[in-house]
């Protein structure tokens, strides 16, 4: 089955983020296709490479990045939600005159149309959040 995942909550604050990660891993292991993972609301905070949890805890951003590299996942961070919350890639850095960027490997910033397209193209859209 072709699946898309929507992540609506930030890492550590809410279990939805790690549940989405576990679900995505399980779906891939079961042979399903992940069309896209879309990060919205505080979910955009999953996509900063500056995440530095204590060593005995999971690094959620890195785990998404590793999973993306291994399986060629399309991890999309909503641009409007990202701008509000300070998640920046190189393009956004230049466009908005910021002094740096923080997007994690394997993530890209794009528009809400990517979420709508995921809904149209996938057999199921699975939403994680409150």
């Amino acid at each position: 089955m072709k699946l898309s995942i929507q992540v609506n909550e930030g890492p550590y604050n809410h279990e939805a983020s790690v549940s989405a990660l576990n679900y995505t891993k399980a779906a891939l292991e079961a042979g399903h296709e992940i069309f896209r993972v879309f990060f919205y609301h505080d979910g955009v905070n999953n996509g900063t490479r500056y995440t530095t949890p204590p060593q005995d805890d999971i690094n959620i951003a890195n785990t998404w990045s590793e999973l993306a590299e291994k399986h060629g996942l399309d991890l999309v961070v909503c641009v409007a939600a990202a701008q509000r919350r300070g998640i920046v890639d190189e393009g956004e850095q230049q466009r908005n005159g910021k002094d740096g960027n923080n997007i994690a490997a394997g993530f890209r910033i794009s528009g809400l149309g990517q979420l709508i397209e995921a809904g149209i193209q996938s057999d199921r859209l699975v939403v994680f959040g409150d």
Binding site: N8, H41, A81, L112, G113, L115, I116, E117, I120, D130
Partner: peptide, 19 residues
């Protein structure tokens, strides 16, 4: 919370997709 407003933003963008 911002859920309601950001939901409306999805609806407005999604409207262009003629679903």
């Amino acid at each position: 919370t911002i859920y309601a407003w950001e939901s409306l933003e999805v609806v407005l963008i999604g409207a262009a997709f003629e679903q």
